[in-house]
Computed example of a mutant assay.
Amino acid sequence: MKRFCLWVGLLGVLSTAAMANQLCTNGGTYDTYITNYNSFANACQIGDKLFWGFQHTAGANASGQEPFSSEISVHAIPGDGFSNIGISFNSGGWVANSTTPINDILTYNVATLSASPIIKDATLTITGTLTGLGDHAQVVETLTPGVAGSPLTATLNSPASVNIVFLNNMQAMFAVKDEISLLVDPGNNTQSHVSIVENDFSELVPEPLPTSLIGSGLLLFGLVLRKRVNPVGAEESK
């Protein structure tokens, strides 16, 4: 009976560890992220990464036409569980014309579940359309603490995706700042837009996932039950 209780307790611990962090709402609006995931204690999880502390502010050159937080949707990018895990920000509101430039800033924190310094690279990708000759759009991503290659700059039309690798200075956590800038040439009667900003992070080695721990716990639990139902020597005693 004591052994049975021990395994039940172990399974409970594993289940609690797996469910300690809520999953990030896929497709939720940025204002809900600001409200719901406002501290490390309320961090949400994508793959083996935690995200929290979301903020949205206007840049120094903002025109006042930047989208509201409720007009930005957030999408989880699970990757393969430890590589290319990230988050993307989508909006139809990052639209500029010759009189209204866009300068928007999104910030948040990302960390490994284990708190181990094993984040080895970062990728920034921008998606959108430049309509007129001379129009310009870019996202500058600043990582704190600083690593080689930060800040990253992705531009339309090239390079729309930028990757940096920092194997000699791997980190457990970053404060991330994405500054979105969109400028239309004053001589153009056009509109250009940025639709998606994506941030991805990879690790050197995979961390043990909670689901695999639960699987191991269930297997051990099943073995204990089997022994209780069919004790060793039961067949021989018949």
Rank of each mutant, 00 (worst) to 15 (best):
P67A: 15
N42C: 01
F51M: 12
N84H: 05
P78L: 12
Y30M: 15
D200S: 05
G217I: 04
H56M: 01
L14N: 09
A18N: 08
E71R: 13
G86R: 03
A175M: 01
I72Q: 08
Q191G: 02
S91H: 06
V229T: 14
V224Q: 13
V13Y: 02
L218P: 04
E235K: 04
G187Q: 14
D121E: 15
G64V: 03
Q22E: 14
S91D: 13
T144L: 03
G9L: 11
N97K: 05
P78W: 09
R228Y: 04
L183I: 12
A60Q: 09
I180C: 08
T35L: 13
Y33G: 13
F201T: 02
N97I: 01
R226W: 09
N109M: 02
T99F: 11
H193C: 07
G149A: 11
T35M: 11
G222D: 06
T29R: 12
L113Q: 04
W7V: 15
I119S: 07
Q55D: 08
A234P: 03
T129Q: 13
I119A: 11
I102V: 11
L220W: 02
I85D: 06
N199L: 09
S195L: 13
F68W: 03
G187V: 00
S158A: 14
N61F: 06
N97M: 02
M173V: 00
N38D: 15
F82A: 11
K227H: 09
A148H: 02
S73C: 05
N97H: 01
F89T: 13
L113P: 02
S15C: 13
I85Q: 15
G215E: 06
A18G: 13
E203T: 15
Y30S: 10
D200E: 14
N103V: 06
T16C: 10
I87M: 12
Q55A: 13
L133F: 02
I77R: 12
G64L: 07
G79Y: 04
C5L: 15
E66L: 07
V197N: 11
P210W: 08
V176F: 03
I77A: 10
G146H: 00
A60F: 07
L225Q: 10
E141F: 03
I214V: 14
P208M: 01
G86T: 09
A17D: 10
V74Q: 03
S39Y: 00
R3L: 11
V95T: 15
V162K: 04
G28M: 06
Y33M: 15
L10K: 04
L130Q: 05
L143K: 05
W52E: 07
N168H: 03
S83H: 07
G93W: 14
G86S: 04
R228I: 09
L223H: 05
A17Q: 12
I180H: 08
P67D: 15
T123G: 01
S237H: 00
G217S: 13
A175N: 08
Y37V: 08
G146A: 11
P210L: 04
H75P: 02
C44N: 09
I34E: 14
A160V: 04
N168S: 13
N168V: 02
V176W: 03
L220M: 14
F40R: 15
